[in-house]
Design a protein around this nucleic acid. Structure first.
Lengths: 163, 163
DNA sequence: TGACATTAGTTGCACATGTAACTAATTGAG
DNA sequence: CTCAATTAGTTACATGTGCAACTAATGTCA
């Protein structure tokens, strides 16, 4: 009984072809590989990198915004921002209209770091997708977007980050 | 010197379109979502699940094999196997031809658990890719395979798991 | 045979991270 | 205005994880 059973197909599971597994593995390689790029060179981790990337892109954000934009738990954001603050890479300015929150922004040193990291990150991405045709890549990214959006709901995210 | 700019194009970076970031996010959703499925129901974690999945598929493996097949660090495998052993879900039998290693296999209880989890895992995958055309999915998986293989090298994997 | 290198697997340690509980500030209903 | 509910952000705690160091067994080369 292999090809066409009657009621309970009970398809076999092959982990190396199982999509959630494969996505998790490639995601792991992504963060580890990229983490190596700026970890060894600048001594920062993935959460710190994400904070810097968002601030470099948007200029000024609250921690809450950062967490939402970069899909990080608020405690992770809190710790990353504290660390960057300690190193003088970001500044924090209390919002006087709502003193619960603070605007975080890159300091001058942070901006310099950002300018250094961006080309490295883009080069890493380039090297990674090198040789894949533009058509295939388009399809890939479109499917990836669907999977990400659906995955967000299947995963249930954290508490705060429900969209 | 590629298409147009003279020396430093300095493309902007948009994190939400940055592939390593996107892959990491979707991979996170994958493991969290699936982890929810068997975590809440059977009280096991991702590493334990992977061990069970490999044993269910291959029958009998050494910890080393498990680590290689499922891309896990040997300490993670060690701890997962110990945990499963403690719960009576796997058995360990010393290889008498090489007493450094031991063959790990699912116990009867482990096989029952495996039989329960597999349909849930496949259903999770189904729900996730539902509505995506077979053509697109084929392209997606092919690109994913390329990215995974290249990512493995870019990431440098762990010590032991270099292929 | 003997000494050194290698390998399977475990464990000590430091560190990262999610949850829950907390503080302080703001909002909203009455 | 007041008090309960909500929100931004931090922290204590427990857990998970990678690295390095370790043990025990095997392989290798002379």
């Amino acid at each position: 009984m292999s090809t066409k059973p009657k009621t309970a197909p009970d398809r076999a599971l092959h982990l190396e072809q199982f999509l959630p597994y494969r996505l998790n593995v490639v995601g792991f390689f992504a963060s580890r590989g990229l983490g190596r790029v700026y970890g060894t060179r600048f001594g920062i981790g993935i959460p710190e990198w994400r904070v810097i990337a968002q601030l470099g892109e948007f200029g000024q954000l609250t921690s809450r915004d950062i967490g939402e934009l970069s899909q990080m738990h608020k405690t992770k954001v809190s710790r990353a921002v504290s660390e960057l603050d300690k190193r003088g890479l970001v500044t924090r300015a209390e919002n006087r209209a709502d003193r619960r929150e603070a605007f975080v922004a890159l300091s001058a040193a942070g901006q310099r770091l950002y300018a250094q990291i961006v080309p490295l990150a883009l080069a890493f991405e380039e090297r990674w997708i090198e040789g894949i045709s533009a058509d295939e890549l388009r399809v890939f990214e479109r499917v990836l977007a669907v999977l990400t959006e659906r995955g967000r709901h299947l995963a249930g995210a954290y508490q705060t980050e429900e969209a």
